[in-house]
């Protein structure tokens, strides 16, 4: 099977969907002539031309709103945010318009738009460029939120997102862009809302998503080798819809839970998960649900300290041992 980088997998998904559906348009800052700020869209302009690959001015509210309006009339825009952090200047368009217009019109309108780009810390770019808004997005009924961890997942989930008739927020990760993995070059789809158990285990369930899933897998390996504990790693892949069945099945198997998220703790995804696990599987739990989040402050610049602010392999290992103690 071909080995692709995460960014190449996304590019392949874009190229396949652009070729499949003439209504798909890729739009954003530097996506065309510049080949993408992170080279995700490299070569697409040459292949598909300027009608399909559209360079925009630095106008997130303008082009995100334009994309939403176009989607109401049958276009399927895939809008790139150079960083998800910049969603704040388009917040009204995404979370008042895309999220609400179906509802406020009594179901007469739908917005088949995808907004994608990287949302992560860990690259020493400071607080303005390190937001991870999956919780904020997911707390708006009407939008879907996807956070892929691997090249394989990124391609299959993005293709599903582009075909989805609801607005999908697709959160990538600059640190993962260069990661490699097996990616079939055929037309496979991964449905949104299906978690992937990336490692089977019996002693502990780690519920996680995005880059934290990759780190959790590494920590689970050490946990097995050095401490003899078997951790199951459930990668949610999609935050909304959410595969709660997969989470609960794993909890019933291991009876211990650690939630790992690259998120500030307050009202984060983990808070919702912890609530639902205790509400639906209280009797299954042999220990309080543990949670490892980003240390609760704006993203610090200082490189070695930022590495400690975020969940990392060491921190996950420590938290896991805490739940198993």
């Amino acid at each position: 099977m071909p080995i692709l980088q995460y960014r190449e997998a996304i590019r392949q998904a874009l190229a396949e969907e652009l070729a499949r559906d003439p209504n798909v348009v890729v739009m954003g800052e530097e996506v065309g002539q510049f080949n993408g700020a992170y080279k995700v869209t490299e070569g697409l302009l040459d292949k598909f031309g300027p009608k399909r690959i559209v360079d925009t001015p630095i106008s997130e509210a303008g082009f995100v709103g334009l994309g939403i309006g176009a989607s109401m009339l049958g276009i399927r825009p895939v809008i790139e945010l150079m960083f998800w952090s910049f969603y704040s200047v388009a917040f009204d368009q995404i979370l008042n318009n895309a999220a609400n217009v179906r509802y406020m019109s009594g179901g007469q309108i739908n917005c088949p738009i995808v907004i994608r780009g990287p949302a992560n810390g860990g690259t020493n770019v400071g607080a303005t460029h390190s937001h991870t808004p999956e919780n904020i997005l997911a707390s708006h009924p009407g939008v879907k939120v996807v956070v892929p961890a691997t090249p394989y997942d990124a391609k299959g989930l993005l293709k599903s997102s582009i075909r989805d008739n609801d607005p999908v927020m697709f959160l990538e990760n600059t640190i993962l862009y260069g990661d490699k993995g097996e990616v079939p070059d055929d037309d496979y789809l991964i449905p949104l809302g299906k978690a992937d158990t990336k490692r089977e285990g019996t002693d502990l369930t780690i519920v996680t998503y995005g880059r934290a899933a990759i780190l959790s897998l590494a920590a689970a390996g050490v946990l097995q080798q050095e401490h003899g504990f078997s951790a199951e790693v459930v990668d949610l892949r999609s935050i909304r819809p959410l595969d709660m069945d997969a989470v609960l099945a794993s909890v019933r198997k291991t009876h211990r839970v650690l939630i790992v998220e690259e998120q500030k703790p307050f009202c984060g995804v983990g808070a919702q998960l912890a609530y639902m696990i205790q509400a639906e599987a209280f009797d299954e739990l042999d220990a309080p649900i543990a949670r490892l989040s980003t240390i609760d402050a704006p993203a610090i610049y200082s490189p070695p300290v930022e590495a400690e602010q975020l969940p990392n392999q060491q921190g996950i290992l420590k938290a896991a041992l805490g739940v198993l103690a």
Binding site: L66, I68, G69, L73
Partner: peptide, 14 residues
């Protein structure tokens, strides 16, 4: 206003 601009974009695109 951006939505209306997007409706116009869709008209032109199509």
């Amino acid at each position: 206003v951006p939505l209306g601009t997007g409706l116009a974009y869709a008209l032109k695109y199509r």
